[in-house]
Design a protein around this nucleic acid. Structure first.
Lengths: 241, 241
DNA sequence: ATGTTTATTATGTCTACACATAAGGAGTCG
DNA sequence: CGACTCCTTATGTGTAGACATAATAAACAT
């Protein structure tokens, strides 16, 4: 095999998909495969790299999942013009997030009421007129200090069980993940001005910038819950890759 | 095959890894495999599902990547106590983000200076004493309206070419992705209070909540750049999954 | 009781091959 | 010229089988 690019390692005789990935990434980022390049087919590449098509397929698939390649049947594999640099944020349960820092976690229910969904909520979640919802305000503490203020709406039409839960002991989030299966989720991050509720429960002055996470959840096209999580002063959501 | 759980479809005789995934997810979320459960081995499962171990492996791997399972050699596959719900945010180049909405993109350089890195920056990026950095302030417009204010520091020690670039035409981000290969990145999302610079260039009043993205980049353990992107009023970063 | 070696086992990954499927492109027909 | 069909092609995914590797558990020696 004269033209083989097989990367030799001490023990391995085979080319692993990780090695192939590394080489592909290098060719994309500093090598000859600039943005827009159409790569050779899997068979050809497999031959060149001295591996099976299965392995080449795996490597290409993973690189594609990293956001560097665009793959289409018949059309082939193409280097993305602008690599999609994607940030993956793990959204842990608050409890886990707090306990990871070594702090003691505490949960408290501030208020709970069952109401007819206000218009803006009906619009936002696509509810029917006069839908009933459970509205919760909860607090999450880290070492006794308020860490996160949770403002949650639960669609009682989709989840009648929510009407019987009082949520004074079990957090709504933990109850939901245990009750509702797999669901479609929309998450937004935004900066909001602290309102009266946030001032009352978090360490904010009125109008202060507050980092908020808004999460809407559906299950089988039915809205389940909409929650806004307001964080304490100076909170950052960080990830590395 | 009496105990086979093969999901029958009209045409397919084989059980696909997607079908297996769906069934596994169902068993985790509403079925008998609650949090902490140790699953049977791949061979056993493959037999039960009427597929090859290869397919079962693929299915389990993907479910694991979704954050529901924890896999370890010899130890086996276990259902995570708290499924890691992860949000993936695509971080497009600003130009692409603007143009996707149909708006016209425009770039402008506000200021450019070469200075000795201030202490807080040295600390933040791990620079040597008296390191020189290029400090840029840039603006990104959508349909003529300021969309994003970019405050960027580039380590001239690691990237001497930056000293010769004037960045009046080419955006620093686009120049960097074309110049620096693959790198390690730390991204933070935070809510900040609008300062004088943001008020001057974005549609903010002093102290307004501003959604900011801070991104630090390294290459081979050398700091490359630190950038803060301040967004216009009402900006949200959203993703679905 | 404690540290070290060894066996066992479940997952990790490679190979070769086969068929499925999507989509571009050529050819055909009105 | 446009709309349709059919062929070709590159990726998508399934199978069986083999070996690699990590990590636990058991056996052993100190």
């Amino acid at each position: 095999m004269p033209d083989t690019v097989r990367i030799e390692t001490a023990k391995a005789e085979t080319t692993t998909f990780r090695e192939v990935m590394a080489e592909i990434l290098q060719r994309i980022t500093e090598g000859p495969w600039g943005p827009g390049t159409l790569l050779p087919g899997e068979v050809e590449l497999a031959e060149e790299f001295g591996c099976s098509r299965t392995t080449m397929n795996r490597a290409l698939r993973e690189v594609s999942e990293l956001g560097f390649l665009d793959r289409k049947r018949k059309a082939g594999t193409r280097v993305r013009m602008a690599p999609i640099r994607q940030a993956r944020f793990e959204m842990p349960v608050v409890r886990a997030e707090v306990e990871k820092t070594g702090a003691v976690y505490r949960y408290a229910l501030v208020s709970r009421e069952v109401v007819v969904a206000p218009d803006w909520l009906r619009l936002r979640m696509g509810l029917k007129a006069r839908s009933r919802v459970v509205h919760l305000i909860c607090l999450h503490f880290a070492d006794g200090v308020a860490f996160q203020l949770e403002d949650r709406w639960i669609n009682a039409g989709a989840l009648p069980q929510a009407l019987e839960q009082d949520f004074s002991e079990v957090g709504a989030n933990e109850w939901l993940v245990a009750t509702v299966p797999f669901s479609e989720v929309e998450i937004s991050f935004l900066a909001a001005a602290a309102d009266a509720g946030m001032v009352a429960h978090l360490d904010h002055a009125l109008g202060d910038p507050v980092f908020c996470v808004e999460r809407a959840t559906w299950w089988q096209n039915a809205a389940v819950t909409l929650v806004t999580l307001a964080h304490r002063r100076g909170y950052r959501m960080t990830t590395r890759y």
